[in-house]
Nucleic acid binder design. Structure first.
Lengths: 120, 120
DNA sequence: CACCTGTATCGACACTCGTCAACATAGACA
DNA sequence: TGTCTATGTTGACGAGTGTCGATACAGGTG
């Protein structure tokens, strides 16, 4: 398989998560999917890594810029992978370094989910 | 130990969580506190229970109204306790039944935290 | 008082998760 | 090619978590 030129890494048709939280009780499936994202932010180290990326210039940071969270390098890598699997971050290799960036759409959806619940 | 009359279970002076997520990297302490709340929503059963309370009339529901999430009664009680400890729900006994209600301020803070991160 | 219903706690178990050291892989450069 | 740095993966271990049955507690009713 040669280079498959511009894979559609962003799927706009996939709604990230989020039936509004206070509108009706979530179904088991909806809860399962939504919980994954909250769970990803439910660890202090991941939250610090995520915050470091989000607050970095352009919402993007090299791993080397954010690895200073008091755990070993493999652990950092592991947590970044989790955040990526949850859809909160995406990664791209540029030369020697790997850059992680936030996925604003997913974040906005999660935020709206909570904000609407608070307003109800 | 007789009844210790009205322990101050709610501490209003405790600000719920939330240094804005994309403004600067979270400190270890901030991350620890904030992660607790996300963690509380990181379980499908808790998310369903929370959604059931939030979507109920007046943002308040009796346990008996929301226990239908496919786990045993002790497990439901355990999860509601977790949500309460995280500051997302509060409870009150009225006669035979116990009512849980959402804490809108905490939710709004969490929502803002994410929304601001998305906007950055 | 006894009894019933609704909710919380306890104790145990299986499973998941965070962490690390060791190793593997990818790219840059000589 | 070889070597160095940056990052990811593997395997293992201990701590934490979700779940349940059994039990305890609270309040209503008779």
């Amino acid at each position: 398989m040669p280079n498959v030129a511009a894979l559609p890494l962003i799927q706009p048709e996939v709604e990230p998560c989020c039936p509004p939280l206070a509108e009706r009780p979530l179904t088991a499936d909806e809860a399962e999917r939504t919980a994954k994202m909250f769970k990803a932010l439910g660890d202090p180290v991941r939250l610090r890594l995520f915050s470091a990326v989000a607050s970095h210039e352009g919402g993007e940071a090299c791993v080397c810029d954010i690895s200073d969270v008091g755990v070993s390098q493999p652990t950092v890598s592991h947590h970044l992978k989790k955040l990526k699997e949850a859809g909160l971050l995406s990664s791209e290799r540029r030369g020697t370094w790997v850059y992680y960036r936030v996925e604003p759409a997913v974040l906005a959806a999660m935020g709206a989910l909570l904000t609407k619940a608070a307003a109800a």
